[in-house]
């Protein structure tokens, strides 16, 4: 086998390791999938219509929830990497003749797979609740692409934070901090309904751009257009920073 073939084989082995872990802990997987659904139901029905949203709130909320669930994926990635680092199993991987990047590639592949599943579940539940979209296949796939791009950026932030902080306490800190970060966005309400500075933060938030772009692609009535550019650039910019940082950090575990 060539070294590329080995690298692919090792990455696939590492991905399968994650899948095997799902098989061991189906409850955890289900909770992960159900949590965004719960948020959707809670905000869509319990708390009821977002401020300043005209018309169908579910149509407005769903793209935001999709984007939010991608952003919250950061937590899951960070927890998993932190656990690995603290359990010493990564030491065994690093002492074995496996491809350098396979540990991280396996992590990304598995997390992305879980996110695709998460999107399917959220969209399925929404469809069951009567949600429909006019989006053609191209626009629909474009929206999914933007969501997964955001998830991919969050994934590498998660890996980097786990490698830098490395302690379960830090995971808790991040778990708390993602909430305001998630809510200071246009996921639940339009920025016009917020006080000035909040609106500014919410407009800047990468989650908002992805959410807005997805609304536009889904053809939500009254959706702002022109967010697609930012919805691509924001995650790419985050990746440009955190991907090399995380890779370098991993390579430097031996220092």
């Amino acid at each position: 086998m060539t070294s590329t073939a080995y690298a692919l084989a090792d990455s696939w082995t590492m991905t399968r390791r994650e899948l095997a872990r799902w098989g061991r802990q189906p409850a955890a997987v289900v909770v992960n999938l159900v949590f965004p659904v719960m948020l959707l139901l809670m905000f869509g029905y319990l708390i009821g219509g977002g401020r300043g949203v005209s018309g169908d709130y579910l149509g407005y909320l769903l793209p935001g929830m999709l984007a939010l669930s991608m952003a919250f994926g950061l937590e899951g990635t960070m927890i998993a990497v932190t656990q690995d680092m603290n359990k010493g199993v990564v030491d065994r991987f690093r002492s074995m003749p496996m491809a350098d990047g396979a540990v991280l590639v396996g992590r990304s592949a598995a997390d992305m797979l879980q996110s695709v599943l998460g999107l399917v579940v959220l969209l399925g539940v929404a469809a069951a609740l009567g949600w429909r979209t006019d989006a053609g296949p191209g626009a629909f796939l474009g929206a999914v692409g933007l969501l997964l791009l955001l998830r991919f950026a969050m994934l590498w932030i998660g890996i980097h934070l786990a490698l830098v902080a490395g302690k379960p306490e830090m995971v808790q800190a991040v778990q708390i901090l993602v909430w305001p970060f998630g809510f200071l966005s246009t996921v639940f309400a339009v920025p016009e309904s917020m006080p000035g500075w909040l609106a500014t933060v919410a407009r800047w938030n990468p989650i908002s751009h992805t959410a807005a772009a997805v609304r536009d692609l889904f053809g939500v009535p009254g959706a702002e257009s022109g967010h697609a550019g930012a919805a691509v650039l924001w995650p790419l910019a985050l990746l440009a920073v955190f991907f090399p940082l995380a890779v370098r950090r991993f390579a430097r575990l031996s220092r």
């Binding site: 082995t13 872990r21 802990q25 199993v89 065994r92 496996m98």
Partner: peptide, 23 residues
């Protein structure tokens, strides 16, 4: 000095995983 295993997987799964990574 400390266990370097995947705690969530079974014993056999661990050994198979490492075997595969040894190609």
């Amino acid at each position: 000095q400390h266990a370097a295993l995947d705690e969530e997987l079974g014993g056999r799964q661990n050994l198979e995983l490492f075997g595969r990574l040894h190609h």
